[in-house]
């Protein structure tokens, strides 16, 4: 038990569970199933982008990907336009979304490496370019996803939303490469001390490059799923995931300063963030109050996490 309590990610689950209970009690238990399913569904998108952001943040101070929202939008838009509501084009649509992700990831790291721009500026400026590309490509036309995809994205299997299952599979893969793979070791080593990692034979450029590409691909995938789930791509559909992707990493117990990451915490944090918002909703709080609370919670967690010794 003590070993479990010592894990940095259990607290996000406790918090999520607590908020879940409070909300259920308020509604008299009427919404238990609905709330749980909604939480899993919406958390799934945060989880997928959060995993990518987690690897990037683990690379160490200054590493963050701010192009996630734009990547989600462009990937969703481009995929839907290519598929053009045809069920036969589903695989082509997924391929387009992934290609968008890979391209943006390569472009981001090219900016960082070739032009020596700090990642925060590089990804922010590339996000403007990507967002503009989405606007130009989409021209304001909202295309519906193919029926088979919108059904898949909104349905559940044995009561578990399909998008949550997708997120679970991706999380399992992320956990394996982080905890068991050499790539995870390298990311963690770079995040602790880049110079020492380089002098110990870690291929620093290759690892960082792969990480930025991985993050963009996961964002593209999340954008694809989200546009199928919500019945079409909107230009602002990624906007809220900028802060969310960073918040779930931090609340989930990954070290903000880099070098230490963990996957389960992303789940707890994503569920927690969604449940806080729905709890405030059931209490009838306004949008302003909801955002205020979200901000206060993130600050609180960062302060609390910085006082704990690193794991």
């Amino acid at each position: 038990m003590r070993a479990i309590l010592a894990k940095p990610w259990v607290w996000s689950f406790f918090a999520a569970g607590g908020v879940w209970l409070v909300t259920i009690m308020f509604t008299g238990g009427a919404s238990t199933l609905g709330l749980s399913q909604a939480a899993l569904t919406f958390a799934a998108f945060s989880i997928i982008v959060g995993l990518g952001q987690m690897f990037v943040i683990t690379l160490g101070p200054g590493n963050v990907d701010l192009s996630i929202p734009a990547t989600m939008t462009l990937a969703g838009t481009a995929a839907l336009k290519v598929m053009d509501t045809s069920d036969g084009m589903v695989l082509a649509g997924i391929a387009v979304a992934l290609a968008v992700g890979i391209t943006i990831g390569v472009f981001n790291y090219a900016l960082i490496k070739l032009l020596r721009i700090p990642p925060i500026i590089a990804t922010l400026s590339s996000s403007f370019i990507v967002q503009s590309a989405a606007i130009w490509y989409n021209r304001g036309i909202r295309i519906k996803p193919p029926d088979v995809l919108s059904q898949f994205a909104t349905a559940s299997t044995f009561g578990v939303p399909n998008v949550a299952i997708v997120a679970l599979v991706i999380s399992a893969l992320a956990w394996v490469i982080l905890e068991k793979g050499i790539y995870g070791r390298w990311v963690s080593a770079i995040g602790q001390n880049m110079r020492a990692a380089r002098l110990a034979g870690v291929p620093v450029d290759g690892t960082r490059f792969a990480t930025y590409v991985l993050c963009a691909v996961l964002a593209a995938l999340a954008g694809f799923l989200l546009s199928c789930f919500s019945g079409g791509a909107a230009l602002n559909m990624g906007a809220e995931y900028l802060l969310t992707s960073i918040a779930v990493v931090v609340i989930g117990g990954t070290a903000v300063a880099g070098g230490f990451a963990n996957v389960p915490g992303i789940w707890g944090a994503s569920l927690f963030l969604f449940l806080v918002v729905s709890m405030l909703n059931t209490y009838g709080a306004s949008a302003g109050v909801r955002m205020l609370f979200t901000g206060v919670i993130i600050i609180g967690v960062v302060v609390a996490a910085s006082r704990k010794p690193a794991a």
Binding site: S188, A189, Q192, N193, R195, A196, A197, L199, F260, A310
Partner: peptide, 9 residues
């Protein structure tokens, strides 16, 4: 401290 240790590990 600068070139060698990975302090979290």
């Amino acid at each position: 401290h600068v070139d060698g240790n990975l302090p979290l590990w």
